[in-house]
Design a binder for these strands. Structure first.
Lengths: 152, 152
DNA sequence: GTAATTTTCATACTTTCGGGTGAATGTTAC
DNA sequence: GTAACATTCACCCGAAAGTATGAAAATTAC
């Protein structure tokens, strides 16, 4: 039942479960309400009491829902897909070297200095890395490389 | 200055204030209720409508309170690990949220879209994160955050 | 030696980031 | 009420990163 803020649910199955649960809860609430309404008209319960019960009931529901929504964690980030080497594109020696330095947080210029190469060369390597990994940003490359165990 | 878990058990004085506030809120709600009740009897509003208004009103109050309460304890709930914190600079709720999205490989614009915020706001957050972590690039922030177990 | 690949470097251009400053609002602590 | 902080948003500017295309050495494989 871990509902995420980004989307409403992780999967269709979970979403269905969520909707079903909410529907059931609503149904219960309405049933309770109607029951009370019945007693209200049948036994002349005091209006104050009736309204109070309704108020408390919905206040409780609201607190419950709101609490859950607020607590709902900020684990919003990743698609969290169990990736498995989707491409046969293997990285070359140099590319792996550069990739590790990228993951270590170095800039292209720093990598160039470290490897005694031109900045343009590093840019070429990084772009080739991105192409092979199917990404277009270095942060994505880090994530993908981690999932593929290319970097620690 | 992360989330102060103490709202419910900080000090007696504060607790009293809290109770007082809640009492006042309840009083307001009841006053509103009574007003409605008056109109109810005076103008013969349909019972269903009346009950509906009451329900929605208290549901809203409940959701608001519950959401606030739920968000509060977000911080304390998970790790319970007294890991090293190298600097007293703690990241705020929002900053941690942004940091996780950064580590997941999203661009600032994508993060802004995801959180329904302005790009400028995200930039402010990211710069604050870098300052607090003592870095000056997002890739470095990812590395540092991972070492501090701020992100998986 | 030729072909394929890797590695290297270049230019040009666009987009994104990072850094600085300022500011309005809302919440919380005291 | 005041102080401190969190959150939001804006503008500017320069640096870094990303995109595209081309091409010259070096390496390896046949």
């Amino acid at each position: 039942m871990a509902v995420r803020p980004g989307r409403l649910a992780k999967s269709k199955k979970e979403f269905l479960k969520y909707v079903l649960f909410m529907g059931l809860l609503l149904a219960c609430a309405i049933a309770l309400l109607k029951t009370f309404e019945y007693y209200y008209f049948s036994y002349k319960i005091k209006t104050d009491v009736f309204i109070g019960v309704v108020a408390v009931l919905f206040l409780s529901i609201g607190v419950y829902l709101g609490f859950k929504a607020g607590k709902k964690n900020n684990y919003t980030q990743q698609p969290a897909e169990p990736v498995k080497l989707p491409m046969e594109m293997e990285l070359s020696q140099r590319e792996i070297e550069v990739l590790k330095l990228i993951a270590a947080g170095f800039s292209n210029q720093e990598i160039a200095d470290k490897l005694y190469l031109s900045l343009n060369t590093i840019k070429t390597h990084t772009n080739n890395i991105y192409s092979k990994l199917g990404v277009n940003r270095r942060t994505q490359a880090i994530e993908t490389a981690r999932n593929l165990n290319l970097v620690p």
